[in-house]
Design a binder for these strands. Sequence first.
DNA 1: CCCATTACTTATCATTTGATAAGCAAATCA
DNA 2: TGATTTGCTTATCAAATGATAAGTAATGGG
Lengths: 143, 143
Amino acid sequence: MDKKALFHKFVSFTTSVHEVTHALTQDVKADSVTSVQYKILENVKVSQPVTPTEISDCMHMSMPNTSRELKKLYEQNLIEKISDKEDRRKQHIRLSKDGEIMMDEAFAAIEVRFQKLIENISEEDLKEINHALDVLQNKVFTR
Amino acid sequence: MDKKALFHKFVSFTTSVHEVTHALTQDVKADSVTSVQYKILENVKVSQPVTPTEISDCMHMSMPNTSRELKKLYEQNLIEKISDKEDRRKQHIRLSKDGEIMMDEAFAAIEVRFQKLIENISEEDLKEINHALDVLQNKVFTR
DNA sequence: CCCATTACTTATCATTTGATAAGCAAATCA
DNA sequence: TGATTTGCTTATCAAATGATAAGTAATGGG
């Protein structure tokens, strides 16, 4: 296997993934939140409950900035902060009712576009795609 | 094929791709350029020569902002502007000598990390990965 | 030739984002 | 118990980014 060639293929693949992701997600976020705030909400949605430290780590942003953005989301009633019973320094962040609604709508919009993207793909090809996703997820994009 | 399940798999896949991409590319850009400027340079590197309008379109940024950033890159001697012989309104952007050096270094650093990422993968698995990349690129992430 | 369009530039402004210093309270550890 | 560490907050500043208005020069169509 030519690893150099594989690298180039990998680069153009990731570029394509970024482009398609952009196409699927553009304009789904409400105007009341910024891009970074939306990203945080996505993160919370997927892995709630989550601590500010975890958000900070996995979004690659400093604690002060994370704290600031969480505060803004809290003030918009999009998230809830629950303090840990055992360690009262810790907090657990969840989406509020409003936050859930907002993110459900966003994901629904994304899914509509995704389904449209694959609507004309044969059952056979879908199985191949499904398998390809598994392969790459498990062997390259393991986290 | 359960298309709903496929969507969820797709979402977590793209998340992983973004994370791995971040890990591979973090800190490769020189301090003298901003993130957006680096992205522009990547774009130019891959598809030079390129017009400002093309950059603007494919990076999803306005012409005025594109123009501003290109000017800064030009002032840093990282790109060249060549005006079109036939249509003198048009420009063709290329990396300058310095720009080429900068981007070659960046890509080399990324490649080192990529090769490290796959160094312990068997020949067999690499072939599978290679095929999976082709499948997804051609059937889902076509652009 | 005139007018509309295209390709790009300049200028300006608001907003977002990133970085840093300093602080506080709870927890841990010696 | 006192010192240190952890988890998070507040405040502040600089820089990057996004958006808009206005302008120039070249092109092209009628």
